[in-house]
Amino acid sequence: MRHRMACICSAFLIVPLLCTSCAKKTDPGVDAQVTSLGSVEVTAELLEIPGEVRNDPLYDYAHVVKYKVLTVHRGQVDKDVIYVGQYNPAKPRDAAADARVGQIGGNLRQFRVGDVHRLAMEVPIDDYYMGGIINKYFGQTEDPVYWALWTNRVVR
């Protein structure tokens, strides 16, 4: 009896997970903003979100995360691995913007390592954003930090 109940409960949780993971269509993440904002546009895989993402009710931070560049669509990117500042990554991109940062957005809802994003960016971050930048890579690399303006989800 117990065994049957456990099976039913597991199925109740696992079946939707399987259904959702099988039901995706491909999507290159193209829209009017990602193809026009900023001076650099790439498709890149999120390699690492170092440390904990601060979700501070009083302050808003940009967190520097690491991407592997898959395709460069616009601008010049010399490295395979780039460091990108994402503003308030705990929030969906369409809810991250505020009066201080202006046009930030995209259709990405959650940042997950391994996912692929299409990004419109500027560089270096300090020229476009003045505020708290949590950069766990500080001192480890001299590479410039990009500032993500628009981040769309890519489904391959």
Binding site: F12, L13, P16, L17, T20, S21, A23, K24, Q110
Partner: peptide
């Protein structure tokens, strides 16, 4: 839990709880 999974599914995302097993 189930309502959240349905909401995320309707938004076209995979359930966030699946992240537990992905990293």
């Amino acid at each position: 839990a189930v309502s959240q999974i349905i909401v995320e599914w309707r938004q076209g995302d995979s359930p966030q709880i699946a992240e537990l097993f992905r990293q």
